[in-house]
Design a protein around this nucleic acid. Structure first.
Length: 256
DNA sequence: ATGGCACGGCAACCGTGA
């Protein structure tokens, strides 16, 4: 099965781009982040025409996540367990065939000063606790999305970020490693351990043209799913299209 | 030279993003 994660930076602005991607790639699941709209504003009809149904967790203007699928999924969670009731729309989790799929948009952590940064770390601690519970329950799962963390210095271009940026701060990386140490596998690095790979290029400063990117969109796999990992690719061509998202799709293929 | 952009909401810029 083919599972794709893509931070689209407004699904309404890029509905046609997303529909074209669905038609071309035919993923089983497309996990979207930063849809930037409420559920009733989600352009479901555009994706229905391509043969996809949608489960949406939205809010006005910011954040928001959605799952597009060709076959029905069962929604398990509409927020990350442990989050406040009024939390931003950053998590949806579905059951798909034998798998649990978590679609996440992790807080950036650069706004709101140190309180904002602490909120990012708290979110990551909640995610770790949730993953630990799924492992305890012996479930097979994928946690994919925009993690807003460059796990190592190999995961961003020199000069693309300051050393104090929330995406590369040591505590952010430690929290990401804590997920890995549970026994999860970073799908991209499992199959491409040494390649320079980015999934985001800023709109500013000619970042795309100069290949000053970041690797911040990740798919973490539980142990048995990792053994079924067949292929990973980055749909870089999406970044070169008119009015692109600043992120590109990460494509993960898992055997039955 | 370390900045250059884009989004939604709203009707002039501003918060946010990474």
């Amino acid at each position: 099965m083919k599972i794709v994660t893509w931070n689209v930076n407004s699904v309404r602005t890029r509905a046609k781009l997303v529909a074209d991607f669905l038609t071309r790639e035919r993923p089983d699941l497309l996990l979207l982040q930063e849809i930037k709209c409420e559920a009733h504003q989600f352009p479901a009809e555009v994706f229905a025409a391509a043969g996809y149904q949608a489960e949406v967790v939205g809010q006005k203007s910011y954040h928001g996540v959605a799952v597009l699928s060709r076959e029905a999924v069962t929604v398990r969670e509409r927020s990350l367990p442990g989050e406040a009731d009024d939390a931003a729309s950053r998590y949806i989790e579905v059951g798909f065939r034998d798998l649990i799929i978590g679609n996440l948009y992790l807080p950036n952590g650069n706004s709101g000063g140190e309180d904002g940064y602490r909120a990012k770390l708290a979110w990551m601690a909640n995610l770790r606790a949730h993953a630990a519970r799924l492992l305890e329950a012996d479930r097979d799962f994928v946690l994919a999305g925009d993690y807003n963390v460059c796990p190592t210095d190999a995961d961003y271009a020199k000069g693309a970020l300051g050393v104090d940026d929330a995406l590369v701060r040591p505590e952010s990386r430690a929290a990401f490693r804590a997920l890995i140490w549970l026994g999860l596998t970073d799908a991209v690095r499992a199959l491409h351990p040494r390649e320079t790979i980015y999934t985001f290029w800023d709109y500013q400063a000619g970042a795309w043209q100069r290949d000053r990117g970041l690797r911040i969109d990740h798919a973490l796999l539980s142990p048995r799913v990792a053994e079924r990992l067949e292929a990973v690719s980055i749909a870089k061509a999406e970044r070169d299209k008119p009015q692109p998202s600043d992120h590109v799709p990460v494509v993960v293929e898992i055997g039955v």
